[in-house]
Each structure stands twice: as structure tokens, then as C-alpha cells.
Amino acid sequence: MRYMMLLRLDQDQAGKQPSDELMAEMGKLLEDMTRQGVLLDTAGLAPVAEATSLRLSAGKTTVVDGPFTEAKEFIGGYCLVQAKDQDEAVQWARRFLAIHGDQWDLTAEVRQVMEP
């Protein structure tokens, strides 16, 4: 089964850059995930200030360009994994969060990708 990890950050961390040490640890984790056949795709996302939001309501679409000052959290990246079940996907998310240490406040929302 495939699982999507949506990685949310608090707005006050917008623009925060990962340290070289964190990038090295992330590289090791992603290498391990690839070697084990778990990692399908992962990436960080452009800043929320560069986002465009589309909303459909009552059949009409509204388009708004960022920045979105009312947003308290934003999705900073994602990780798509292949796991046997939700528990295994959660364990990978735990490892992902753990390498960030105490310098980041992150939330990883793990959700199964619904297959047709």
C-alpha cells in the first residue's frame, strides 16, 4: 500500500533553511528508504508565499495568490512511501521527524493513498 506523509510546519518557520548536518542525515535516511524499497517520491515545496489557492464554492472557482497571512501552518513537503500497513508508514514518519531534532516543529500527517 502507498502512504503519503504530508509535512506541516508552523508559519513562524517559513523560510527556515535546514542545516548541512540535517541535510546529511536526511540523505542517509532517504538512501536507506530507497535501499529498502520504501521510498517512492519525496520533495520540499516552494514557499507558501509563492502558492496559488483555488477554491470551488457553489460551482464557482476563486483563485487567490499567496502569501496567505491567515495561515498558521503550511505543508512544507511530502514523502510518498510503499509500506505493508499504516503502522510501518508511521514508523518511517517517526524516523523522518526524529532526524530534525529539537530545532524544528513539524507535523507528519500519514494517510493511505486510496487505490482504484
Rank of each mutant, 00 (worst) to 15 (best):
L97H: 05
L106S: 02
G15K: 05
L80Y: 06
L97R: 04
V48S: 14
L56Q: 09
T34D: 13
E115L: 13
A83P: 03
L106C: 04
Q82W: 06
T62K: 12
D10R: 11
D12C: 11
T61H: 04
L45V: 10
Q112K: 14
S57Q: 14
Q91T: 07
Q36A: 15
P47Q: 07
Q103W: 00
D87M: 08
D41K: 11
R8F: 15
A71Q: 08
M23Q: 14
A51R: 03
D65Y: 05
V38T: 10
L29S: 04
A46D: 11
A108P: 01
D12W: 11
Q91V: 01
E21A: 15
Q82P: 01
R8Y: 15
A46Q: 12
S19T: 15
G77S: 08
K28P: 03
D65L: 06
H100S: 05
A24G: 15
A98K: 07
V64K: 07
R8H: 14
A49I: 04
S57G: 06
G59D: 08
M5C: 10
G66V: 04
D41Y: 12
E25S: 14
R55V: 10
A71E: 04
L56V: 11
D41C: 09
L39S: 07
G37F: 09
A43E: 15
D32E: 15
E25V: 06
D102E: 10
M23N: 15
M4D: 02
D20T: 15
V113E: 15
Q91M: 06
F96H: 01
K28S: 15
L54A: 13
A108L: 09
W92A: 00
D12K: 08
P116W: 07
S57L: 10
D87E: 13
A89K: 00
F68D: 01
H100N: 08
M26S: 11
P116G: 11
D102Y: 00
P18H: 10
G101K: 01
G76R: 01
E70Y: 00
D105A: 12
Q11M: 13
L7S: 00
Q91P: 00
Q13P: 02
D10P: 03
R2K: 15
H100G: 02
Q112Y: 08
M114C: 09
G27C: 14
R2F: 12
T34K: 14
P67I: 01
L56P: 00
Q36H: 11
L29N: 02
W92N: 00
G76E: 02
L80C: 08
V64M: 05
L80A: 08
E115F: 07
D85R: 08
K16Q: 14
G77A: 11
S19H: 13
K72L: 08
F96L: 02
A14G: 07
K72M: 06
L22N: 03
L54C: 12
D102S: 06
T52K: 13
D105Y: 01
L9H: 12
R8N: 09
E31Y: 10
A51K: 02
I75W: 03
R55G: 05
L29I: 11
Q112D: 05
I99R: 00
E73M: 07
R94W: 00
M26Q: 11
S19A: 13
R111V: 13
R8E: 09
C79V: 06
K60W: 02
T62Y: 02
H100Q: 04
A71R: 01
Q17S: 14
Q86H: 10
P67K: 03
A58R: 13
V38G: 03
D20L: 14
E31F: 10
M114N: 10
V38Y: 01
